Amino acid sequence: MNTVNRDTVIVKKKEFIPALGYSCLTDWYDLAIKLTMPEKKFRGKLIDELNPGDGETILEFGFGTGQNIILAHQRNNKAALTGIDIDPKVKAIAAHKLNKLGYNIALCLYDGTRFPYANNTFDKVFSSLVFHQLDRATKLACIKEIFRVLKPGGQVVIGDWGKAKNKTTRFSFYLVQMLDGFKTTNDNVNGLLPVFIEQSGFQKVTETGFINTKIGTYSYYKAIK
């Protein structure tokens, strides 16, 4: 049974880039995704890759406005889901959605450094559209934290912007870079995220697929601890 307190808050947070790059735009995040990406397709494939099983303990790193963790729960409500994020504004949005649906899923805020979980806690960790908002050092630190909290044999599933598959998606991705910053997004578009995953100790690192969207190439990565 999931025992994480959904109201756990660590108040001294590391600086972070909000959804859409600016806190004032966070309320428009869900609409922006609907307008610029094939939402049903890319989220559905993310949950397909996650494949939540009965009784599995699953953490979403960067739950955002809650769309993915809701879909994971709807796919299998016998999985024990937990979400972690740094942004209190998105937590309020996600919590409102969960309360409206009557879903009891733990949502935790953390300080942007060490995850508040013991070693070898989760069967799976998944994440979507988070790593392109992190600088290289933070990317590596967060992947190492994911490795730490996964059980041996556990699986990580990451969906995020990857290396553009054609000139059109590379050009359109400049919009994302202007909002979220070139410093944090360059590693993604240069195809380095799977390299960082492997450097953090994971095995069988694989890009399992991608979707070309109006604003870039969204890629799926899986690996095993």
Rank of each mutant, 00 (worst) to 15 (best):
L134W: 00
Y103I: 09
I33C: 12
V90E: 09
N68M: 01
V125W: 04
N188P: 02
N166T: 09
S23H: 04
E207A: 10
W28M: 13
Q155A: 08
I105K: 00
D135Q: 06
G83C: 03
L81A: 07
E145V: 08
K151I: 07
K204P: 00
P194A: 08
H96Y: 06
Q133C: 14
V176G: 00
G44F: 03
E198I: 00
F210L: 09
N51A: 15
P18R: 02
N2E: 12
F182Y: 15
Q133R: 10
L109C: 04
L193K: 08
L179C: 08
E56A: 04
Y110I: 01
Q199I: 00
S219G: 11
T82E: 00
D111L: 02
L175N: 03
R6W: 04
V176M: 14
D180Q: 08
I158P: 07
T206V: 13
S128I: 12
N186L: 13
I58V: 14
G44D: 08
V156C: 09
A137F: 00
E207K: 15
F202E: 10
Y218P: 02
R43N: 15
Y220C: 10
D123R: 00
G154V: 11
D111V: 01
T169Q: 06
L31G: 00
L175S: 14
N2M: 11
P194H: 02
P52W: 01
L193S: 07
V149D: 03
A223K: 06
I146H: 04
G102T: 07
T213M: 08
G209Q: 09
E56F: 02
W161K: 06
K14H: 10
Q67Y: 08
N119P: 00
K139T: 13
I86P: 03
I17E: 06
P52T: 05
R114F: 11
A92Q: 13
